[in-house]
Simulated assay, not measured.
Amino acid sequence: MTLRIGTRLQMITATALLGMALLIGLAAWDLSRVIGDARAAQTRTLVEAAHGVLAYFEGEERAGRMSRAAAQAGLSRRSAACTTPGTSISGSRTCIRAW
C-alpha cells in the first residue's frame, strides 16, 4: 500500500511535533527538579548558618563571656536582616552574608 506524498508529509510533521512536545515536557520536568534541588540546598545553607550563629552565642553565654541578655540581643541583631517582610530567595543570600 502506497501513501500519497501529502499523507507522508503529514505523518512526518506529526511525528516531529510529537517528539518536540516530548522533549519540551522532559526539559520542563528536569528544570522543575533542578529548581527544587537548588531551593533545598539554599534552605539547608540558611539553616546551617543560623545554627552556627546560635551555637556561637550559646557558647559565649556558657563560657561566661556574655550574659544571656547580651547573647539574645546579639542574635536578634544578626537575625533582623532575615525577618524583614518580603525577603525573597535572593534576600536569603543577604541573610547569610549578614551572619
Rank of each mutant, 00 (worst) to 15 (best):
G19D: 00
R93V: 14
R78N: 06
R78Q: 13
Q72K: 13
L22F: 14
M66G: 04
E60G: 01
L75R: 00
A63P: 01
R44A: 12
A81W: 00
R39A: 12
L18D: 03
R68Q: 12
V53D: 06
E48Q: 15
A80T: 13
H51I: 13
L46W: 03
A50L: 09
R78G: 01
V34H: 05
G19E: 01
M11D: 09
E48N: 12
L3D: 04
A14C: 04
T45G: 05
L26D: 08
A81D: 04
G74Q: 03
L31Q: 12
I89F: 11
Q42T: 06
T15L: 14
C82H: 06
A69Y: 11
L26C: 12
A63H: 07
I96R: 13
I12N: 00
M11A: 12
V34F: 06
Q42D: 14
C95Q: 07
A16R: 06
A38V: 15
G36I: 05
T87P: 02
M66W: 00
A70P: 01
G74V: 07
Y56T: 10
G86T: 00
E58A: 13
I96Y: 08
A38P: 00
S88Y: 03
L9V: 02
L75M: 10
T43M: 09
A98I: 07
V53N: 02
W29I: 03
R77K: 12
L18Q: 02
Y56M: 15
S92E: 09
E60I: 04
L54S: 11
W29N: 04
T13S: 12
A21H: 04
S88A: 08
A14V: 08
A70N: 09
A38Y: 10
R65S: 10
G25H: 06
T84A: 15
R4P: 11
E48C: 02
W29S: 03
A50M: 10
L75Q: 00
R93I: 15
G59Q: 05
A70L: 13
M11W: 12
S67A: 04
Q42F: 01
A21L: 15
T7Y: 01
A28Y: 07
E61F: 09
E60N: 03
T7G: 01
R8K: 13
A28Q: 11
M1V: 11
V53G: 06
T83I: 11
G52L: 04
I96F: 09
H51W: 13
A81C: 08
I96E: 07
L9A: 13
Y56P: 01
M20K: 02
